[in-house]
Design a protein around this nucleic acid. Structure first.
Lengths: 173, 173
DNA sequence: GTCAAATATGCAATAGTATAACAGTCGATA
DNA sequence: TATCGACTGTTATACTATTGCATATTTGAC
């Protein structure tokens, strides 16, 4: 539970890879937590799934399936085909370990896989990095409005594009 | 201005094509308003752009670019190629006459092109119909939360999936 | 341990979505 | 009517994702 809180701080604060961000530590932590989570749930984080997740966590920038494929092809070990990567991504999404970014046809690691959440993605148009926001009030307001029209809400996709803190500084915006 | 209000009612009430919905009238109105709007703005709603918009307004279900293409190919008149359709869609989006549905790779008519708005799409997973919701409070809440992290919000993509009123009834949900 | 069932991966082909590049045409305006 | 800019046609290709089937690996029951 304290872990959840720690992660939430990461999520809200240092998540855009900026000055204070030790990404090696960040990625290592994400991988370790994925291992633990899969263990806990009795699902298998196989070699290929782990490799895909590692590539995704090489940064905070959403990667396309074929970017991932290309990276894996350079590594030693098998050179997987598209279906293999898509199947791995499907598994990782089911486990909440990665999110699909609809506006980019790309995939990004989820920093908070331990908790089910309905997150919003913040996408920097300058550097391409993504961060995740959890803001329930706004979602609830929209859900209420939709239900008031008789629509039963089952899932949310919320993506905000703009400028991350460091790119904002660079652009003087 | 009264027109804006009328449309807002359409938007919020009868927009999912249900019992009380006269779609012929709905589509005709959308086309007429598109004509007027383009006239007003001094941009050209050319033949092909109008045909694409007509196809889109044949219903409230988002259509893929290639669905549109196939429909146009059956009509008399030229049989356009993909770039032609995509260019028409680009124009229609710029004018706010259609929205792209990111989660479906598809396009749907905007019922309220006269006003700039940051809308949310409601997508029925059963019948495929889409409706539009304008709920500013929730958006503002999310924007505030994002800006509090130093992120400058420039654009929103919000899509809610679920069941429209009539499909909800059918499923007993 | 061994076998059957379930799960996961490899592989080839193909479907679906979108854009680049360049040529030609049309329309408004001087 | 000459010209410039906007629009469309056409070909080719890039990018994204899935289907179907064969093979391999793991799991659990016996």
């Amino acid at each position: 539970m304290t872990k959840g809180l720690d992660e939430r701080e990461t999520l809200e604060g240092a998540h855009f890879s900026g000055f204070g961000h030790d990404h090696t530590r960040c990625a290592t932590s994400a991988l370790a937590r994925a291992e633990a989570l899969c263990q806990e749930r009795g699902v298998r984080l196989t070699e290929i799934r782990r490799r895909v997740l590692e590539v995704i966590w090489s940064g905070h920038r959403p990667l396309g399936a074929y970017d991932i494929l290309a990276t894996l092809a350079q590594e030693s070990g098998g050179k997987p085909q598209p279906p293999t990567v898509y199947r791995a991504l499907e598994f990782l999404q089911e486990q909440g370990l990665v999110h699909r970014v609809e506006t980019l046809n790309a995939f990004v690691g989820c920093p908070l896989p331990e908790e089910h959440h309905r997150g919003q993605l913040l996408l920097c148009r300058a550097c391409g990095d993504a961060a995740e926001l959890v803001e329930e009030q706004g979602l609830r307001a929209m859900q209420r409005a939709a239900e008031a029209l008789g629509f039963k809400v089952e899932g949310f996709t919320v993506e905000l594009s703009g400028l991350c803190p460091s790119c904002r500084r660079k652009e003087g915006a």
